[in-house]
Design a protein around this nucleic acid. Structure first.
Lengths: 159, 159
DNA sequence: CGGGCGAATGTTATAATGTTGCAAATTTCA
DNA sequence: TGAAATTTGCAACATTATAACATTCGCCCG
C-alpha cells in the first residue's frame, strides 16, 4: 500500500465519484432532500477531480453537457450541496470540492497544493480540539471553522 | 483588568491606531520599504475599527477624504501592507484587518463574530502546532495558513 | 384524475470583488 | 542632473455572486 493520500497518487477515480454519488443519494434520502438531476450532475462534476472547482468552471462544464445554465443554477445547486454537507467551499480559492466525509458535520482541514492544485481533506481532530480550546479561552462560541493550508504536496515539492 | 479581549470591550481606540501606525513605520523603516501617504492612510482606515473592512469600503473611505481613487489604488496598498505583514486578509469575508503582531510572520487564528463583526487575532501556538503536525503527517509543506472561526463573541451570545 | 401548493429551475439584470495594461509622476541613486 | 526603478492614475475589463421575478415541476389531497 502506498503511503500517499488518495489525491496524490493514481487511483481508480471513477470509484471515488461513484462512491461519492452513492453516499450523496443516501444522505439525501435519509434527510428527505431532493437530489435533482442538476444537483447530482453538479456534484458529479465537482468530483471529476480532487481539485477545487470554481462556480463558473462548473457552469462551463454544464454548458458542454448542452445544459445552457445561468449562474444562479450553479450557485443554487452548490447551496444545496453545501447545506447537506456534500461539498465544501474553499474560501481562499472561491472554489468548491467534494466532501470526503459526507453526512458528518465535522471540522475539516484542507491541504491545498499550489502546484498541482489538488486538495486533501483531513478530519484532524487534534486541530479541531486546539481550535475549540483557543476559542473557549476567549469565551467565543464557534459556529463555522475554515482551515485551509496552502503549500506543496508530497508529489510537488522540488525542495 | 477586564478579562475580555481588546476588541470586545471599550478601550482607547485612538491608541490602537497610533500604536499600529508607529509599528508600521518601524517595520517599513527596518525593511527599507516605503510607507507612502496612500499606504499609510489605508492602514489607518483599516484600523478605524476591529472589524474587517472590504476593499471597496476602503475605497469609499478614501473618496470621503477627497482622494478620488480607483480600485487598483486600494488593492496595491493592500498588497503592500499584506506583504509586510501589516494587515491580514480574511478569506471568508473578502475583507482586511490590521495585524496585531506586525512584523512577525506567524500563523494566526481569527475569531470573527457574526453579530458585531469584530475579529480577534490570536497567536494560538497550539493550533499552529496541530496544523503543522497534521500537514507533516501527509508530507505536506505548508506555505500559508488560513484559520478563521466564525461564531459569537462573548459580548454577543444571547445563549 | 386534476387542482393547488411549495419547491425547484429559468432568465435577465446587476452587484460585489479583483485584475490588466499602459501612461504619467515621483523617488532613488549613481 | 539624468537614467532606472518604484509608485500612482486611470480606463477598461474579468471574475465571483446575488436579486427579482416568471415559469415549470413534483407531489399531495380531495
Amino acid at each position: 500500500m502506498s503511503s500517499k493520500a488518495l489525491p496524490y497518487r493514481p487511483h481508480n477515480h471513477a470509484a471515488c465519484v461513484q462512491q461519492a454519488l452513492a453516499e450523496a443519494r443516501t444522505v439525501c434520502k435519509v434527510q428527505n432532500a431532493r437530489l435533482t438531476p442538476t444537483r447530482e450532475r453538479v456534484l458529479e462534476l465537482i468530483w471529476q477531480s480532487h481539485k477545487p472547482l470554481g462556480a463558473y468552471d462548473l457552469l462551463a462544464a454544464l454548458a458542454e453537457d448542452g445544459h445552457n445554465a445561468a449562474p444562479p443554477t450553479v450557485y443554487r445547486a452548490l447551496d444545496f450541496l453545501l447545506q447537506y454537507g456534500l461539498v465544501h467551499r474553499i474560501a481562499s480559492l472561491n472554489a468548491f470540492i467534494g466532501c470526503t466525509h459526507a453526512g458528518e458535520h465535522h471540522t475539516s482541514v484542507f491541504l491545498i497544493c499550489r502546484s498541482c492544485r489538488n486538495a486533501l481533506e483531513l478530519a484532524a481532530p487534534s486541530v479541531a480540539d486546539a481550535v475549540r480550546d483557543a476559542a473557549a479561552a476567549q469565551a467565543f462560541t464557534p459556529e463555522e471553522t475554515t482551515i485551509e493550508i496552502a503549500g506543496q504536496c508530497p508529489n510537488c515539492h522540488h525542495d
